[in-house]
Write a protein that binds this DNA or RNA. Sequence first.
DNA 1: CCTACCGATCGGTAGG
DNA 2: CCTACCGATCGGTAGG
Lengths: 221, 221
Amino acid sequence: MDSKGRILKLATRLFARQGFAGVSLRSIAEGVGISKPSLLYHFPSKDQLREEVLSEVFDHWARRLPSLVRAVTSRAGQSDELMNELVAFFSEDPDRAHLLLREIIDRPDEMRRRIGDSLRPLVMLVAETIRKGQAVGIVQSDVDPEAYALSMIGLTIVHIVAAPVVEPVLASEGGVVANERLQRELYRIANTSLFSAPARAAKPRRERDERDDSAEARPSR
Amino acid sequence: MDSKGRILKLATRLFARQGFAGVSLRSIAEGVGISKPSLLYHFPSKDQLREEVLSEVFDHWARRLPSLVRAVTSRAGQSDELMNELVAFFSEDPDRAHLLLREIIDRPDEMRRRIGDSLRPLVMLVAETIRKGQAVGIVQSDVDPEAYALSMIGLTIVHIVAAPVVEPVLASEGGVVANERLQRELYRIANTSLFSAPARAAKPRRERDERDDSAEARPSR
DNA sequence: CCTACCGATCGGTAGG
DNA sequence: CCTACCGATCGGTAGG
């Protein structure tokens, strides 16, 4: 990988873990094996470096949108699929969740624009699918579609970031790993607060084939 | 208020909003109207200042625990009461949520200890109450008590911090303010993912008096 | 991509 | 509580 790419990669890690103000250009340059002025040859300023780091994260997100869309629209909008995609996106590189959450705290005004643009399409689509589910009766009628979508995204991100920190609170219950318990509960909350009670309650009866086994949440791995 | 108190107060605000590394001792001293060495007379180092800022937040939390306990144990553990207390604690001073979330990202190892100690009592109590509810049948049997409690705390914090940022995504729906929609949905999710379906579904019938109207969530204000 | 260097600002100290 | 000052480090530039 070329220098520019290696700089971006390390900068993403360090910004995510230590924060923009907590990372010096020298430490980034050193980690890549070049001098600070050489770094500034690729990125004219520290702010510009942050800009490109963020752009890359949001580009990844945009590139992921189609599969998220597919997850939402397939199978009459089972929330499993959407949660799987959400968890996968942030799990495969937790720095994304860290960076996003950090920028929301550090630069709320700037993030308001960025998130507005990049999140709206997904939220709108999820909301639309939920409304259809409400019309058919498989989704609870008092769900606020947009607020629900945003809540689940927020819950997913905070789960990724906070899981290692709250682990000791869960650890006393031997057996299952803390992270797995949290993730399972995340899926359960997402499902039970979305789908209508009858559909969930009628499980042993198995009246409606096919859709039955996916109405209950299961982590993907 | 004395200088020490004013320093603590301003430091809390600035650390919460701009992060520990992003705040200089000079800017704090200036805001309080003293010189930097004067600040260092009250707090021997910047790290010591952070330490006391965090201690204060956690002391507030500990002082609040009794009323949280009351909220959990009263009325057979309706989640409304607990969520009200949680939202109130962070809403009355959003800097608490900001600071907490930021420290979780910045210093996960240190926070693991701190959160373990200060959160465990509450989580354990909530979990115990949930298990009782499961025994009686008013709480869904597949709720993971500890994981549920932690998820709701996390969802509350992320709601406080992210609400202003995601507002534009919700704003298109005129009428109700974005924040209120998110809060209402927060309560609804907390309730429907906790209590058994029959208790919620039987609403119009009004078979069981007294507990009926509180089974559905309503923000406190 | 480098060495050499800039002014500004950092946390912290000496001394009163 | 202050003035004066410390070495270290910051982001960034000159010049090659």
